[in-house]
């Protein structure tokens, strides 16, 4: 297993206003593998993803992707870097005024000077990879949830990116469609040798697709490692996440009662 890193995250701190979402994250994402970032709701998964995509500027720290530090990169450098990156968003984020085919072609039309024939052929190749070839001329509003995700995936890989980000591939899908999507992700890694980062909280697919897993909790990195290492971990938060046990909240019964009955403020004022 080669251990070249595609993404190096160093001491990353991200804040929204005064609220600290991510607290000093250090994470390496290896080249040519599928890494899964998981964690419960509010653990900071989406914020970490947005920082990696350059959509949210971190308060401090560094994110080095394929050699470019995107936190300090100029807009021009960031623009160039993004041409090597593909993103499939949670809701698909397909442009509703264009057909599926036009959506997928958009990056090609904007960034390359290929002739019309080549663009059409490339579009069909990518559509075929995600089994969407018959649906090229549909509008996004006519697609089912699974088709939307697959179309978004086709758009993300149209430029043959080195890095592919996939936000919640199985959210809102039935188990069969989500399993098909997992197969697709594995196929992409094997056939196109991409580095793939998947953000999800679906346990089933995580262990099916992941080469590496990073678990986030309460704004910090709890554990990162191979699936075996994660399974072997005895950290209560990891075990809890894997066994789906509800979070234990330690509460003082008296205080809780006071808060519920609204007496707390009154007693505070005294």
């Amino acid at each position: 297993m080669t251990q070249e890193t595609a993404i190096e995250i160093r001491d990353l701190v991200v804040e929204y206003g005064n609220r600290r979402i991510l607290n000093s994250i250090d994470l390496d994402i290896p080249l040519g593998q599928i890494s899964v970032i998981m964690g419960g709701s509010g653990a900071g998964k989406s914020t970490l993803l947005r920082s990696m995509l350059g959509l949210k500027k971190p308060t401090s720290g560094a994110i080095r992707m394929l050699g470019t530090d995107i936190c300090t990169a100029s807009p021009g450098q960031l623009q160039e870097f993004r041409k090597q990156m593909g993103v499939a968003f949670q809701g698909g984020a397909l442009f509703t005024s264009m057909t599926v085919g036009e959506n997928i072609q958009l990056p090609l039309r904007q960034h390359t000077r290929l002739d019309e024939n080549t663009i059409q052929i490339m579009t069909r190749i990518k559509l075929d990879m995600v089994n969407m070839l018959p649906h090229e001329h549909l509008m996004p509003s006519e697609l089912s949830g699974g088709m939307t995700k697959r179309a978004a995936l086709a758009r993300a890989i149209i430029m043959d990116p080195k890095l592919l980000f996939f936000d919640e591939p199985s959210a809102g899908l039935d188990p069969i469609t989500s399993a098909e999507l997992d197969e697709l992700i594995i196929k992409l890694k094997q056939s196109m040798n991409m580095t793939i980062v998947v953000v999800t909280h679906e346990l089933e697919s995580v262990f099916k697709i992941a080469d590496r897993i990073a678990i986030l909790g309460d704004g910090g990195l709890i554990l990162a490692g191979t699936p075996e290492e994660i399974r072997a971990s005895d950290d209560p938060r990891v075990v809890g996440l894997l066994n789906r046990t509800p979070r234990q909240v330690n509460v003082d019964v008296d205080q809780h009662l006071r808060r519920l009955s609204g007496l707390q403020e009154a007693s505070d004022k005294k």
Binding site: G86, A93, F95, L106, P107, Q110, R155
Partner: peptide, 22 residues
């Protein structure tokens, strides 16, 4: 507004397409 909240603007940015201009 809908494009912004359904992440379409983010998607454009990630495709290295400038949403202001586009």
């Amino acid at each position: 507004g809908i494009m912004r909240i359904s992440e379409q603007v983010d998607a454009l940015e990630c495709m290295a397409i400038n949403p202001d201009k586009f």
